[in-house]
Design a protein around this nucleic acid. Structure first.
Ligand SMILES: [Zn+2]
Ligand SMILES: [Zn+2]
Ligand SMILES: [Zn+2]
Ligand SMILES: [Zn+2]
Lengths: 133, 133
DNA sequence: GGCTAGTTGAGAATGATTGTCAATCCCGGT
DNA sequence: ACCGGGATTGACAATCATTCTCAACTAGCC
């Protein structure tokens, strides 16, 4: 399917971004990840953070999620296969979920209406227990 | 649930935006709607377009949709109740769809994980028949 | 015809994301 | 260890959707 993927060199910056992602259980914005890198004293240029995240997404190593305000959030998920997320609006805590029924429903529906090259987005938002008053 | 809604006056601008929305079957961005208004010779300030659209969304008279690149699209839907969309990526043609099974699945899942104030986003993208090569 | 509060719009401001490009670095070959 | 060339970096500028500002305008009401 995908042609030969471009070579990715191992650099201090790339490792630093990956380290932050591996320590984070929540979906976070590029800006937040950049701030965290600075806080750790392992500073990486903002452009590089964006570039690295884009590469990770292209390689399917990182999942993205669009917040209501349009900002993109990133997270390194454990599941290898296609899945969705139950996300806490206030703390970003995330549960990876599978919905086999939804997958087939969406594909069938699209086919019935003559749609091609189908994809879908599905995210569930809420407030987790820890974030109750 | 919602308190007394703020008064909305009937202005030329508001009517013009609604007129465009009613003629459009596709999801469109605020900028595109603004361009269409100018083309019709019924120009409305861009700020006003955004303001009007926001008000319509707040009043549940218009549906929104976040495109992959984070831009917000607007559409005046026919269905009164909660529903989702099957959208053509190239022309924006939209089919309103219902997924009762998904609704209950999402709510139950969130409840099982102790989540509160649950909402969800679900959109299906594809290429419609007219947009095949 | 006036009053007044909601509305408008040109332009500035915001803020995330992307582009630029010279300096720097990784890595396979020697 | 020493190159060399292509990949990577980062300070900064640029883009672009969206929001803010605020003085001028107007719909709705007496
Ligand atoms: Zn995930
Ligand atoms: Zn899915
Ligand atoms: Zn709709
Ligand atoms: Zn739904």
């Amino acid at each position: 399917m995908s042609g030969t993927e471009p070579v990715r060199r191992t650099t201090r910056q790339r490792s630093a971004v990956l380290a932050v992602l591996d320590d984070l259980e929540q979906f976070r914005s590029a800006q937040e990840i950049h701030t965290e890198l600075v806080r750790r004293g392992d500073s990486v240029g903002l452009s590089t953070v964006y570039r690295t995240l884009s590469a990770l997404v292209a390689d399917d190593d990182v999942d993205t999620l669009l917040r209501d305000d349009g900002e993109t959030l990133y997270r390194r998920c454990h599941g290898e296969t296609h899945h969705h997320h139950l996300v806490c609006r206030s703390c970003g805590a995330t549960v990876e979920v599978d919905g086999p029924a939804v997958e087939t429903w969406a594909d069938r529906l699209a086919a019935e209406h003559g749609f091609d090259e189908v994809s879908h987005t599905l995210e569930i938002f809420g407030r987790c227990e820890k974030c109750r008053v």
